[in-house]
Amino acid sequence: MNILEQIYQCLIDKGRWQLILEGLGATLTIAAGAIVIGTVIGAVMALCRVSDNKLLRGISLVYITVIRGIPMVTQLMIFAYIIFAPVRMDKVLVAVIAFGINSGAYMTEIMRGGIQGVDPGQMEAGRSLGLSKWQTMFKIILPQAVKNILPTYTNEFIVLIKETSVAGYVAINDLTKVADAIRNATFNAWVPLLTAAAIYLLLTIGLTKLFSLLERRMARSDRG
């Protein structure tokens, strides 16, 4: 078989392109859903982490310690086969929650670093004007912290997209799983796996470009 025939067999024959699109859909759904959940959890937990309340600080510390200390695949399986086992829930949704909670722990630390990276004089200036701690946090500190964390945030999103490739462990047909299934059916490893690889690469490059555009726009105030 020549290369074109191989490509036809692996990507087009028997509607396999549909399979790949569905796999890509699952990958994107999990990554996008997880980044939203992760960002929300990360923001809340980061604020807990820098709060004066010992209990809140303790909760966030336990959360990040536990989540970061267990491999993603293990967590995913625990969510799929233990926590959500009693309820019949869509596997992709389970993965969104599992990846979201996992990513939230890393987001917490990224955002905490961003918040603490803002000059303490900014908080003092806000407080000296009569703003409360939280008013200063939301109006003065966080907007600057967002700018600080954007590069690391992009990176976390890219890591997340790549990490979703373990979703196949809980029988989700994500991009990697689908590519592997095509390999099994066609005995051709090259075409499906390299296709999956190329799609991942395009996704991550596209995202990097998108975020660097955003970074440049946010740097406006630095140039005046």
């Binding site: 000059d119 004089g121 900014q122 003092e124 200036a125 806000g126 407080r127 000296s128 004007l129 009569g130 003065i140 600057q144 105030s221 630095d222």
Partner: peptide
């Protein structure tokens, strides 16, 4: 604090 203005050595303007 609203009634006590403060000026800092390093200005601390909001960038």
């Amino acid at each position: 604090r609203r009634k006590m203005g403060m000026v800092f050595q390093h200005f601390n303007l909001f960038p």
